[in-house]
Amino acid sequence: MRSFLALITIVFCSSCNVKSIFNKTEAPKTEEVKPPAFEPSFTTVAVDTLLAEKLSIRTLVIDNNKVWYAANNGNYGNIDLKDGKRFVGHIQKDTLKLEFRSMAQTEDNIFVLAIGNPGLLYRISKGESAVALVYEEKGEKVFYDAINFWNENEGIAIGDPTEDCFSLLITRDGGQTWKKIPCEALPKLAEGEAFFAASNTNINIKGERTWIVSGGKKSRVFYSEDKGKTWQVTETPILQGSSMTGIFSADFYDETIGFATGGDYEKPQQNFGNKIITSDGGKTWSLVGENNGYGYGSCVQFVPGSNGNELVTVGASGVFYSYDKGKTWNKIADYKDLFTLRFIDSKMFIAAGNKKILRFRLQ
Rank of each mutant, 00 (worst) to 15 (best):
M1E: 10
R2P: 15
S3A: 13
L7S: 12
V11H: 05
V11I: 07
S14T: 14
S15E: 03
S20D: 15
K24M: 15
T25C: 09
K29L: 12
T30I: 15
E32W: 08
V33Q: 02
L51A: 04
K54N: 11
T59W: 00
I62L: 08
N65E: 10
K66P: 14
N73F: 13
G89Q: 02
T95E: 09
F100Y: 03
T106C: 03
I115R: 01
N117A: 03
A130F: 13
N153Q: 04
D160H: 06
F166D: 00
G175V: 01
W178A: 09
E191K: 10
N202I: 12
N202P: 11
N204F: 06
V213W: 00
T236H: 02
I238H: 02
L239A: 05
L239V: 02
S243T: 10
F248L: 12
F252D: 02
Y253M: 08
T256F: 07
A260F: 00
K267H: 09
N274T: 01
K275S: 03
T278G: 05
K283Q: 11
L287E: 04
E290L: 07
G293W: 09
V312Q: 01
T313D: 14
G315R: 01
S317W: 03
F320Y: 03
K327I: 13
K327T: 13
K331V: 13
L338W: 10
M348D: 05
A351M: 04
G353W: 01
K355A: 11
K356Y: 14
